[in-house]
Design a protein around this nucleic acid. Structure first.
Lengths: 220, 220
DNA sequence: CTTGACAGTGAACAAGTTTTCATAGAACAT
DNA sequence: ATGTTCTATGAAAACTTGTTCACTGTCAAG
C-alpha cells in the first residue's frame, strides 16, 4: 500500500480522533481550522489523496460522511515464510468482523501493545494506549484454541505487526483466516493449535500473517 | 426519563443503525426518505423531541452531526432501591475508558444482547449484532470479580439496559464506578463481589446502575 | 532542466442540510 | 368544549459544506 505523507497521516489521525471524541466526522472546514490552512482546498487535496491511497472512503456530496478503509494487513514476514501445502483440518473457522470504525484518540503512540481500547474521558488513564487503526476483530468458531483461553464464540482483536515466536496470529491459509500459535523452530515455521486433542505442529508455506491476536473478548 | 413515542424511538433506532452501518450519521433527508415523510419538518420535529427528552444531542447547524446522550441510565429499579450507607472496601476501582465511537453495522436489531462487535465485511456473519452506541468500556482494577473470570487489567464492555437479578453491573457508588453482581433477595438489593475472600453481600441504597457488563476483554 | 508528486492560496459556486414559518388533523385528558 | 401533545404537510430561508477553477511554490527523480 502506498505510503501516506506526514500531513496526510496527521489529517487522517485528526479525523479519527474527531469521530472518537464527538461521534461525528469533522467538516473540511473543521480540518482546515485545526491545521490552520488558509484554504479549504488544501484539505480537499489531502482528502483526495487519502482516498486515492485507499485508506479513506468519501461519500461524494454528503457532509461529514466518511469511512475508514478496512486496512490491508499483509505483512512480509521476511526470512520466515515458506510455502503452504494443503488444507488444515483443524483450523479455526473465523468470521470476519469489522473493527470498530473509530478509535478514540488521546496519546499519539501506539507502537507498544498490551492495553485495550483507549482513554478519553478520564485524565488518569493517560497511560492507556489505543489500537492501530488497522486492527480488526474476528469471531472465533471452533475449539482449537481453547487451551489458550480462546473459546468458540469469543471475539479476538487482531493488530498488525511482525509476530514474534510464540505469538497467536491470524493467518490466511487457503483463503481462510485461521487463528493459531506461531512456532518457529530453526528455519521452519509451524502453526500450532492450542488444544490437547490436536497436539501436532502444522508446517506451513506461503504464510500470510494478517496480524497478531492481542486480546480476547468474551460474553458474560 | 421521559418516555419516547414509537416514532421517536424508531427514528432514533434508525439513526443509530445508520451510524453503525455507514459510520456517519444520516441527514434529515435520509431519515425523511426512510420513513416516507413528505416533509423534512416531520423529521425535524422528532429530532427536537429526541433532544428535548435528552436522548439525542444535536450540534446546531452542523450537518450529520449528533451525539447520543451518555444514556440516562438511572434506572428506576422501583421497589428495589433503598439507601447506600458508607464506603465499600472491596469495590473495584475502575478507570473510565471511552467506547469506540462508531460501531459497524449489519442488522438493525440489537435489542437482544450477547454477541460482540459486529460484521461488515463478511456476508456470512449476518447474524451478528452490534452494541448500542451508549455502550462504554471500563478497565478493571482490583480482584473482587476474579471468580467471575474478570481480572484486574481486563476491560469490560458495559451496555445500558435494565439489569436482571444476577447480572454483573456497573454501579455508581459514592461517586465511583464499581463492578459487582446484582443480587435481589425479597425486596432488598445487594451487590456481591465475586471473590471467595469477600463472600459478603453488600446492601445498597440509592443505587445508580450505569449498565450491564456484557463482555470481558483480556490481553493475550 | 524538465517532469511529476506534494503542498498550498483565494475566491466562488453548487449542492447538501438544517431551520423556520404557516397550517392542520387525530387522539386524549381536563 | 378546550387545550395539549403528537403527527404531519409544504414551501422557503438561511446556513453549511463539498467541489471546482485559476494560480503559485517546493522538492526530488529522471
Amino acid at each position: 500500500m502506498e505510503e501516506l505523507t506526514k500531513k496526510q497521516a496527521a489529517i487522517l489521525e485528526y479525523m479519527k480522533a474527531h469521530v472518537a471524541e464527538h461521534s461525528y466526522w469533522p467538516s473540511i472546514r473543521d480540518i482546515q481550522a485545526k491545521f490552520r490552512f488558509a484554504s479549504t482546498n488544501a484539505v480537499f487535496g489531502h482528502l483526495q489523496a487519502l482516498e486515492r491511497k485507499g485508506v479513506l472512503q468519501r461519500i461524494p456530496g454528503a457532509a461529514r460522511a466518511y469511512k475508514v478503509a478496512p486496512a490491508a494487513l499483509v505483512e512480509d514476514l521476511s526470512d520466515v515464510v515458506i510455502r503452504y501445502e494443503g488444507p488444515d483440518e483443524n483450523v479455526l473457522q473465523l468470521e470476519s468482523l469489522n473493527y470498530l470504525g473509530a478509535i478514540p484518540a488521546g496519546l499519539p503512540d501506539y507502537t507498544e501493545s498490551s492495553g485495550v481500547l483507549d482513554t478519553v474521558q478520564a485524565p488518569m488513564s493517560a497511560s492507556a494506549r489505543r489500537r492501530p487503526p488497522q486492527s480488526f476483530a474476528l469471531r472465533v468458531r471452533g475449539d482449537s484454541m481453547i487451551d489458550a483461553g480462546i473459546d468458540s464464540g469469543d471475539t479476538v482483536i487482531i493488530e498488525p505487526g511482525h509476530p514474534k515466536n510464540g505469538d497467536i496470529v491470524a493467518a490466511l491459509i487457503d483463503g481462510e483466516t485461521t487463528l493459531k500459535r506461531l512456532i518457529k523452530q530453526g528455519n521452519k515455521v509451524f502453526l500450532k493449535a492450542e488444544n490437547k486433542n490436536y497436539p501436532e505442529l502444522h508446517p506451513v508455506n506461503d504464510l500470510v500473517i494478517q496480524g497478531i491476536a492481542k486480546s480476547v473478548m468474551k460474553s458474560i
